[in-house]
């Protein structure tokens, strides 16, 4: 999702201090003083806002409404703005009756594990490649980056066969959470992101610490990690979101309904249960990522829109 994040805070000096929302100078202050431009801008602003509400938020608002409506509403009066009667019970019923609660918990568990594994892999590898710079580092980095070239879906079948019998270990990961957690670590993008951020930390800092007798582990804990909070926050956020959304791999690797995350369980629920309850389930599955978004809106937006590696 997010592209290559630039290191350090972005230049903001030329902007007025109060204005934290970046905007383009396509329309100059001079333009804005012209009546035609002002009215034109205002009209497009309103039209676009209405379109965004209808197209982007509309389906979600409809889901909110339908989740607390009787099932008959969905077929009989899908256009009504308000439920014919409030059925907040749908949510509780979905949580317990459809066992959505368990699936949500599985999702939380899966996302959490993916986060831990990805943080470990990306920080340790980033540190080794960026700071320790072993002689084979370039080759290793190239091999990691090369996996970006081959989309994950292509090696789906062999990945499955590997997970069900890991060569050398003979371990079967299928139907255990490790089948999701461990492959999540093989995320070249996060390694790239973290390594590039580490590259931007001035080398003098390490040298100073080394003189004070700090070993590599101390370097990582005392200097690199505390300085890397911005990038780690972005990596964490996007890891969590991605893990919550993942569908194809858990569908294949976790066939035991007791262990499936919500994204995999929902299509089955959709085929077998009452529509009103299903929509309640859809809503419940959307609440955690939406809460995450509300809480970390700025980081998400900046992470996505972060420096794309192209010169502006």
């Amino acid at each position: 999702m997010s592209l290559i994040i630039d290191e350090g805070p972005r230049q903001t000096s030329e902007r007025p201090p109060k204005d934290t929302e970046p905007f383009s100078r396509l329309v100059s202050p001079h333009d804005r003083r012209r009546r035609v431009v002002r009215i034109g801008l205002r009209i497009t602003e309103i039209v676009v806002l209405l379109l965004l509400i209808a197209f982007c938020a509309g389906p979600i608002l409809w889901m909110l409404k339908a989740a607390v409506s009787p099932s008959s509403d969905i077929v009989a009066r899908p256009l009504s703005l308000w439920p014919s009667e409030n059925r907040f019970g749908n949510l509780g019923e979905a949580l317990s009756g459809l066992e959505i609660g368990r699936y949500l918990l599985n999702s939380v568990y899966l996302a959490g594990g993916c986060l831990v594994v990805q943080l470990i892999v990306s920080t340790s590898a980033g540190f080794a490649l960026s700071v320790l710079k072993p002689r084979y580092g370039k080759v290793m980095y190239a091999m990691i980056l090369a996996t970006l070239l081959v989309p994950a879906t292509v090696s789906l079948v062999p990945l499955y066969l590997t997970a069900q019998r890991m060569p050398g270990l003979g371990v079967n990961l299928i139907n255990s959470f490790w089948a999701i957690w461990l492959p999540a670590g093989a995320n070249a993008f996060n390694v790239l992101l973290v390594k590039r951020f580490f590259d931007g930390i001035p080398a003098e800092l390490y040298e100073a610490a080394r003189v004070d007798g700090a070993g590599p582990l101390t370097l990582l804990w005392r200097i690199v990690l505390p300085m890397s909070r911005p990038v780690l926050a972005v990596v964490s956020l996007f890891t969590l979101i991605a893990a919550w959304k993942e569908f194809l791999w858990p569908l294949i690797a976790l066939t035991d309904p007791q262990k499936q995350p919500i994204a995999v369980a929902l299509p089955t629920i959709a085929k077998t249960s009452d529509q009103g309850l299903l929509i309640a389930g859809l809503l419940l599955a959307s609440v955690p990522p939406l809460l995450l978004f509300i809480a970390f809106q700025r980081q998400v937006v900046n992470g996505v829109g972060g420096d794309t590696g192209s010169k502006g």
Binding site: C56, A57, P59, I60, M63, I241, W244, K245, F247, I262, A263, V264, L266, P267, L282, A285, S286, P289, L290, L292, F293
Partner: peptide, 9 residues
């Protein structure tokens, strides 16, 4: 907003 929803939803 829609990007945040699980694709399945």
């Amino acid at each position: 907003l829609p990007v945040m929803l699980p694709p399945v939803v």
